[in-house]
Nucleic acid binder design. Structure first.
Lengths: 351, 351
DNA sequence: CTGAAAGCGCTTACAG
DNA sequence: CTGAAAGCGCTTACAG
């Protein structure tokens, strides 16, 4: 590399400051040292930066954490990143982000690349039968699950989740209390934790409320705008469309709203909508969007703390599983079914 | 760390395979070796993974690239990441992503953390008077700008951009050709390259078309949904609203569209809209969104290639500046101004 | 508080 | 094609 300047080493600093490398090293790590100021000034003059590689090799620590998520463009994960970074900054750790595009293969590659360059991994596995966590465990690297977990593994890991089933149930109960009986779901894939749990919560709550869920009221899609858009078009294309819908993911909700606008279905007059995850836009819309809200940055903070504790050995062997609560935030997108809409649904049903 | 297993080393592998560590190392790097298969099987049995730290320390290479962007949730940068990763995978490099939240301070921290753990940096600087590139240069680490650049630095860097001015001009010329005279802009911050260049391109094209741009037709906002939303509300809140608008960024366009929907302004009847950057949704909307399109993944690919060439010393000292073309993609959101809308605008103007 | 010394786990000329 | 040896730049017991 022609432009690369040979950086100075700790010995260069030591020589010019008239101390030993040990002393420079100690000073760098905050130990009290006599020539502290002299060392500082030499460091500045030389533009010295300790070699991360040498530090890692010798100390066995890297000071880095990998955060591996299925979709970096999802604002939920962006919030998680913010939380994780703020929790790690305090202990001097750097967060590296990697995107798997929801592919277990990409995830395997990322993990392979990351093992040995980080002290720990926070992972939102793409699917519940994902085998990558075993690889991480074999390498002796601490791992924490966030948002999703894998099942059937002989090993368990620290995990931070929200009560997805309860969140979905709250949405259903809210809609049922408003008088809706024709309630549909736009659901994410059942192979992932949030997809499965929100679906199960929805079905259980509908059952408890004595409301049937015809096949046509269950529409699946990928966890992104396009998935929600297509699923919602299918729901609305039926002869007897629902009067209310629960959408199981933030990006899917955006897609679903676009579909609703395209078909010029008025919210909440003809259709009440509840989304999962609050976002910047939820109260800018007219009407505002009713959502199941959950802690986001906080999950990042907790995941990072669990991981750092694990790394520092500050925690007993038993992995923790933390499940946070959701909150229903009611805005204008949910209302009692209008007489006409309800009647239409009823009439069609009996036709 | 109680759970961490001491990993095996290259010497362990060498011993069990009956060769020297040198031979194992060579085999690992693809050199022809006699005991190749034996070595492979020992590696498998032992679950050997070479220590990245030791490799870096000895070879002076890390095999990693940092990609530092202002907003990971912007689909443009997600596409850049995809492109960069595909270009780096071929040469065995791993990409680490870092988010600066458009803050030069966060950017400084990220760069400080990343220097010494990567062989090069691809940076989309938050602002044009950003001083962080100088730090990177001092550390002797190759740097490539993408999407944004900094001005006034004594050093120049490889840079990959698009012709923002021309893109904005195409939008204006398209609208003017349709017969619009009352054309407004929702612009990002002038402190960033895309904000400034698109603004300048818009103003120059309006000037060339002989169309005045009253102050009220220029609305600035941050490069996100909220910025576009608020700016658009301001534009539409005027006594003489424009009949067409150019929105200078993808996320701002989403926000602007929400504002337009809220105020129930029909597109394109009362307002034609051109966005910057195509996205998943542009042709799902009704009407479809006319946009200035630009290569996205390709920019990531090119940035990575420039950087890898620099790292490998495969390139002459002179930094390259590559400017890609934009394309106007016309969909239904732009149409001639309706007689009423135009008349309203005219009438109001003369009132 | 300080320094000399060993060593983390690799890679890479060097000599054969 | 192969091995012995040196060394990348730190950190960390050890002894003082």
């Amino acid at each position: 590399m022609s432009t690369a300047r040979r950086g100075s080493t700790i010995s260069d600093v030591a020589d010019r400051a008239g101390v030993s490398a040990s002393t420079v090293s100690r000073h760098l790590h905050g130990d009290a040292v006599r020539q502290g100021e002299a060392i500082d000034s030499v460091i500045k003059i030389l533009g010295f930066r300790p070699s991360r590689a040498a530090q890692s090799l010798r100390s066995g620590r890297t000071g880095s954490i990998a955060l591996v998520v299925p979709d970096i463009t999802n604002p939920f994960f962006a919030a998680v990143v913010r939380g994780a970074e703020s929790a790690s900054a305090a202990e001097g750790f750097t967060v590296f982000l990697s995107n798997t595009e929801e592919s277990p293969e990409r995830e395997a590659q990322v993990i392979d690349n990351v093992l040995g360059r980080v002290d720990g991994i926070i992972l939102a596995p793409a699917s519940e039968d994902d085998q990558n966590p075993a690889t991480v465990h074999r390498a002796g690297v601490p791992l924490v699950f966030i948002d999703c977990e894998t099942t059937g593994s002989p090993v368990t890991f620290d995990t931070i989740l929200v009560d997805n089933r309860r969140g979905a149930r709250e949405a259903v109960e809210h809609l049922a209390a408003l008088g809706h009986r024709d309630i549909a779901i736009v659901s994410g894939p059942l192979g992932s934790t949030p997809g499965r749990e929100r679906y199960e919560g929805f079905m259980a709550a509908m059952d408890d409320a004595g409301l049937p869920v015809p096949d046509g009221y269950v529409a699946f899609g990928g966890f992104k705008e396009r998935g929600g858009h297509q699923a919602m078009l299918r729901l609305l294309g039926q002869t007897r469309p629902p009067t209310a819908v629960f959408v199981g993911n933030n990006l899917m909700t955006i897609g679903a709203l676009h579909a609703i606008h395209e078909l010029a279905v008025p919210i909440p007059d003809a259709l009440s909508v509840v989304g999962f995850d609050d976002h910047v836009f939820a109260d800018l819309l007219h009407p505002g969007l009713t959502v199941v809200e959950r802690p986001m940055e906080e999950q990042g903070v907790i995941a990072m703390r669990l991981l750092l504790n694990r790394i520092a050995g500050r925690v007993d062997a038993q992995p923790r599983r933390i499940v946070l609560d959701t909150t229903l935030r009611v805005r204008g997108s949910t209302a009692p079914p209008s007489p006409t809409a309800a009647m239409n649904a009823r009439a069609t049903r009996h036709a």
